[in-house]
Amino acid sequence: MGRVRRTGLSGLLVAMAALGLSGCGSSFFGFGEEESPAASTPAANPAATNSPSVLPGASSRPTVPVSNARFSFVSLTGAPASVTGRLSSALGREAATRGLQLAPSGDESATYIVKGYLSAVGDASGTIIVYVWDIFDKNGRRMHRLSGQESISATAADPWGAIDGAVLDAVARRTIEAIGTWGASD
């Protein structure tokens, strides 16, 4: 498989991917689908970046410090089960490394609920995975949205077939870092 590389995408590609993400379903962290408050309000990312970004007006300060919070990743749409399973493991490892506390889906002690959307697009030059994460409070109010992308030189007839562990590790690392950065915001 190819190594992770950083490249830019046109805003149109990311917007199309982000809009299309809510239509695909998959389970995440071994849990079933739930109707997402974000499913009715997906927003397109107007500018492509390799690092997670925040959409204007899509973020509120954490009501509970991230260091004291428990995050429940409850759904991930857009990717096949093999990818969501590997990404779930990578997120769990990265959260443990960085001291981010996770809670199982449906755990009422979770401070924040996290729902994700993935898309993979490819052509002869490589494959790009685009991700969007929405963080909700216990009342279902979206507190924060982050998005990003990772690119690799590998290709496959089905773009998901080109996504390897290094790419998923990078998505997990950037996701957990971005949650920590949100928690450190003033």
Rank of each mutant, 00 (worst) to 15 (best):
P52S: 09
G106L: 10
T63H: 11
V83F: 15
L55H: 06
E33L: 06
A39N: 04
Y112C: 06
A81E: 15
N45S: 09
G32S: 08
R86S: 15
S119K: 10
R86D: 13
A48K: 01
S88D: 09
A58P: 01
G92R: 14
R61L: 14
S72H: 00
T77S: 01
A103F: 04
S119I: 02
P80F: 09
E108G: 03
T63Q: 15
S67M: 14
R98T: 07
P65M: 11
G57K: 11
Q101T: 11
P37H: 02
E34A: 03
L91I: 15
A110N: 00
Q101I: 03
S72G: 12
L100E: 08
T49E: 02
P104W: 07
A43K: 09
S105T: 09
G106H: 13
T111V: 05
A110P: 00
S59G: 06
S119A: 14
T63Y: 08
S119G: 12
A39E: 10
G85A: 14
L55M: 07
L118P: 14
A38H: 01
D107Y: 03
F31G: 04
K115F: 00
T111M: 03
V66C: 05
A44K: 06
S67L: 12
V114F: 05
G57H: 13
S53M: 12
I113K: 01
P46Q: 03
Q101D: 02
Y112H: 05
L55F: 05
R86E: 14
N50Q: 13
A79S: 02
V74D: 10
S82N: 13
G78R: 09
G99T: 11
P104T: 10
T49C: 12
V66T: 11
P52Y: 07
R70Q: 10
G32T: 03
T111Q: 02
G78M: 10
A79R: 11
K115M: 04
P46W: 05
F73C: 08
P42M: 04
G99R: 15
A95T: 08
R98S: 13
T77D: 12
F31S: 06
R86G: 07
A39Y: 01
